[in-house]
Design a protein around this nucleic acid. Structure first.
Length: 869
RNA sequence: GGGCGUUUAGCUCAGUUGGUAGAGCGCCUCCCUUACAAGGAGGAUGUCGGGAGUUCGAGCCUCUCAACGCCCACCA
């Protein structure tokens, strides 16, 4: 055994280990959750990645955090389920398949719905597993036996039931409204799928002549081509400029159609000319005005973004694209001398989130979910704490959106998705909303499909067997525990899951929403393929290892959930740590002399060094548990890094080279590996299995997570060992500053420190390269020596011929000055009556203690200095 | 227009109830010391964005100003 370990490479081969370890877990079905278990449940559902997607850094972060939580709770004794799956991604997938068809010179309309769906299903089936396979490279301990797809049978059943129930409750309705229409996707999209971009445009002022009298009213618009759909000109009722015109009529230039001049509070007197043309079929605000005033809706732009050939539209524009039509309209207006003024104007233009095409607000028949009644309990659940956001600030964001919620347009004019379960009688047109077609002979199904987010909104329960509420998974694992995601989909996804979960299961779908930051490039830019600034997690894994990737990402997760700026080199941090763990473990394990059953920890025979490291370990255990439970994953990473590197390797392993307690050495390593396992699962599994005591155990991932143990608090030993470290550091500093040859030994005199240092003489000798130690009661005078004060102990290093007296005095003075500055400030504090009376007692006493310490040390330094004189 | 975030060492960032600052990288000096050069030892570096206030005491709380970033709203 030990010889095997000695033969292990000094450079940790991450990929080799990781592949083997992952296979080991998978082959043993360790990720499979048991819905029959007596253990308390802990469950997470994955934010289903798009079926079109390939793994990016955002996923890597998201999945890492979910895996950390899952593994932690599994070790803590929970029945842990992390449920994986994919989203059918309506528009994204259809776009991909259509592009592919276009290459072959085909389009979906030629193929027909049936054939197109077959092709798309083939494509989806081929790609569905790709991203989850990639997640395996991340070490994901999700339960693939429960893998789901938003378009699978179970999810589809849930979707139909939810739709029909909401319809029957009057919470889904169909109607003609202004929607965001994407002329490229050929579909309506929801408000939150519309992103606004600032564009340089113009404000065109156009003169609309009054009817039957002299004069005109000048309106301002950014979209002159929509003038053919105007049904009124509106002014503010309190605008004295236009007071006399209200109720009169004016004439649309170029076509001569007469429209009324109306008054509406919506109009801003100070903007443009204060007169606004009303085009209810092509502007959401005008739509509202139109409804208020019972105006007709005249649609002049079609679903392709082209001008409709109808009598209201000037014949020259029939069939012209909206932008071409704008140019032509302007030319005609100029020719007719009704274009009064053109002012450059910056304004926001809505773009399709998927394809960045400028959306066209369009009057169209769509399905909507009435959100307000659904939002109410969803607001309440967050306000009363049944659902908690981490960090807390996102609650405000969520609440503000929910409190101003607008109805959700859920129909999409696509083919890929859940077809809306509404059926129309072929002859009468009568509509039936039902999970099944009432009579396929005579009824045809609505051709629209549902917004992708409609099905992902059901994800936490549709994946658990719902609507079968007796299903074992639903009973055991719903509601889920934690939801982990980025803030960018709080509205799209989190809010919808909460509303739907509460409405259909009566329970919040999860109790905590853990929101992490977004991954950005080193300049803080969003990573995107088009910018070419992406870092591919698969490449990073190949280069640095999966555990290195995970550890680096985890360490960058701050409590505030800040965005994470990444560059390739940052992963060296995790890789170096993995390598350090590897080598320290190798060293410890290959030098074991005892057999497994001799390695039991005996608390009655511990040296101070042993007590010190156990004390540090115990403290680390406490901090790790606390921090992980508070979602402070970055803190956990740095606590473990610090403990292992600085306490265990730099000190305890070094001490063990002088005198070792193999049981402690191994016990601490074993516990540390468990603490780290959730973040770095592979290397910890690998090494843990090399520990002789664990040879019959199954796996670290199934072991118990370490718990704080009051028996391992050793305050005195800690003080003594830390004094040793302080002395060693000081002696090394002296060696370095006085250029003592690295290999040369020094002699030292310790004054008044027998009690503190007698027991650690060997350590002192080895760690500071000391030949002889002489314990003295008082310091010898006028020695040519460098010295240091540790607590109330003086350590003197005679350096005849090496020492420059002036330099040493200067060195000591510098230390003295530092102490005196601190002393002055502390004494100032103590002399302040208000501080003494109002500061907490422990702060006051700590200040007193510190003052005594400083005085003591300063006194010793002064003695040292006077020895030179 | 409303909301949120950021501003701390040369760089990237930590810093949980207020008790006078930390890490990694980089930098300087030295070292292949019986695990690790992806390493070891030692070292330098900060009026914590500006200003005001509360407090015995402020990187942290309040106000204000500035710069940058994000989200929501969408005045044509």
């Amino acid at each position: 055994m030990t010889s095997d370990i000695a033969n292990l490479p000094t450079k940790y081969e991450a990929r080799e280990t990781e592949n083997a370890i992952y296979k080991f877990w998978e082959d043993n079905s360790f990720f499979k959750a048991d819905n029959n278990s007596k253990k308390p449940p802990y469950s997470i559902v994955i934010p289903p990645p798009n079926v079109t997607g390939i793994l990016h850094m955002g996923h890597a972060l998201d999945e890492t955090l979910q895996d950390v939580l899952t593994r932690y709770h599994r070790m803590k004794g929970y029945e842990a389920l992390w449920l994986p799956g994919c989203d059918h991604a309506g528009i994204a997938t259809q776009n991909v398949v259509e592009k592919q068809l276009a290459k072959e010179g085909k389009n979906r309309h030629e193929l027909g719905r049936q054939k197109f769906l077959e092709i798309t299903w083939d494509w989806a089936n081929k790609h569905k597993d790709r991203i989850l396979e990639q997640c395996k490279l991340l070490g994901a301990s999700f339960d693939l036996s429960r893998k789901r797809f938003t378009l699978d049978e179970g999810c589809s059943k849930a979707v139909k039931k939810v739709f029909v129930d909401l319809y029957n409750k009057g919470l889904i309705y169909k109607g003609s409204y202004i929607v965001n229409w994407c002329p490229r996707c050929q579909s309506a999209i929801s408000d939150i799928e519309t992103e606004y971009e600032t564009e340089e445009g113009n404000l065109w002022e156009i003169s609309y002549p009054l009817k039957d009298e002299m004069g005109a009213i000048v309106i301002a618009t950014t979209r002159p081509e929509t003038m053919f759909g105007d049904v009124a000109v509106a002014v503010n009722p309190n605008d004295f400029k236009y007071k006399d015109l209200i109720g009169k009529k004016c004439v649309i230039p170029l076509t001569g159609r007469e429209i009324p001049i109306i008054a509406d509070e919506y109009v801003d007197k100070s903007f443009g000319t204060g007169a606004l043309k009303i085009t209810p079929a092509h502007d959401p605000n005008d739509f509202e005005v139109g409804r208020r005033h019972n105006l007709p809706f005249i649609k002049v732009i079609d679903e392709q973004g082209k001008m409709i050939a109808r009598q209201e539209v000037h014949p020259e524009l029939h069939g012209k694209d909206r932008y071409d039509a704008r140019e032509r309209t302007i030319r005609m207006l100029k020719a007719h001398e009704v274009l009064v003024r053109i002012t450059p104007h910056e304004h926001n233009v809505g773009k399709c989130q998927r394809c960045n095409t400028t959306i066209e607000p369009l009057l169209s028949e769509q399905w909507f979910v009435k959100m307000e009644p659904l939002a109410k309990p969803a607001i309440e659940a967050v306000k009363n704490g049944s659902i908690e956001f981490v960090p807390k600030r996102w609650e405000k964001n969520y609440l503000m959106w929910m409190e101003n919620i607008r109805d959700w347009c859920i129909s999409r004019q696509l083919w890929w998705g859940h077809q809306i379960p509404a059926y129309y009688h072929k002859k009468t047109g009568e509509m039936v909303v039902s999970t099944e077609n009432p009579d396929p002979e005579n009824y045809t199904q609505d051709t629209d499909v549902l917004d992708t987010w409609f099905s992902s909104g059901l994800w936490p329960f549709s994946t658990m067997g719902w609507p079968d509420t007796d299903s074992a998974d639903f009973k055991k694992f719903y509601p889920t525990t934690t939801l982990v995601t980025g803030f960018d989909i709080i509205f799209f996804w989190v809010a919808r899951m909460i509303t739907m979960g509460l409405e259909f299961t009566g329970k919040p779908p999860f109790s905590t929403v853990y929101i992490h930051g977004l991954i950005r490039d080193e300049n803080g830019q969003k990573m995107s393929k088009s910018k070419g600034n992406t870092i591919d997690p698969v490449e990073i894994i190949e280069k640095y290892g999966c555990d290195a990737l995970r550890f680096t990402l985890a360490s960058l997760c701050t409590y505030g959930g800040q965005d994470i700026k990444l560059s390739d080199e940052r992963f060296e941090y995790g890789r170096n740590f993995a390598n350090k763990i590897w080598n320290a473990s190798r060293f410890v394990l290959m030098n074991l002399t005892k057999s497994a059953d001799e390695l039991n920890l005996d608390l009655s025979s511990l040296s101070n060094a042993d007590k010190w490291i156990l004390n540090e370990l115990n403290n680390t255990i406490k901090l790790v548990n606390e921090n992980i439970q508070n979602y402070r994953i970055g803190e956990v990473a740095s606590i473990l890094y610090d403990f292992f590197w600085n306490s265990y390797c730099d000190w305890y392993v070094e001490l063990s080279k002088i005198e070792k307690n193999e049981a402690v050495l191994v016990c601490v390593l074993d516990k540390f590996l468990k603490l780290l396992h959730p973040i770095m699962p592979h290397i910890t599994e690998k090494i843990w299995q090399l520990i002789p005591e664990n040879k019959d155990a199954k796996a670290i991932m199934l072991s118990d997570f370490p718990e704080y143990d009051a028996r391992l608090e050793f305050k005195e030993a800690k003080e003594q060992i830390e004094a040793l470290f302080e002395a060693v550091r000081s002696l090394r500093n002296i060696r370095s500053e006085f250029n003592v040859i690295p290999g040369a030994k020094i002699n030292i005199q310790i004054v008044g420190g027998e009690k503190l240092f007698k027991g650690v003489v060997e350590y002192l000798k080895r760690l500071a390269k000391v030949e002889n130690i002489e314990f003295l009661a008082s310091a010898p005078s006028d020695s040519q020596a460098a010295s240091v004060v540790v607590g109330d102990v003086k350590i003197i290093v005679p350096l005849k011929g090496v020492i420059n007296v002036e330099e040493e005095i200067a060195r000591q003075n510098k230390k003295l000055q530092k102490l005196e500055a601190e002393l002055k400030s502390l004494e100032g504090r103590m002399n302040n009556q208000k501080f003494v009376s109002s500061a907490p007692a422990d702060v006051v006493s700590a200040t007193k203690t510190r003052i005594e310490e400083i005085k003591l040390a300063a006194g010793k330094i002064n003695e040292l200095i006077s020895n030179f004189r």
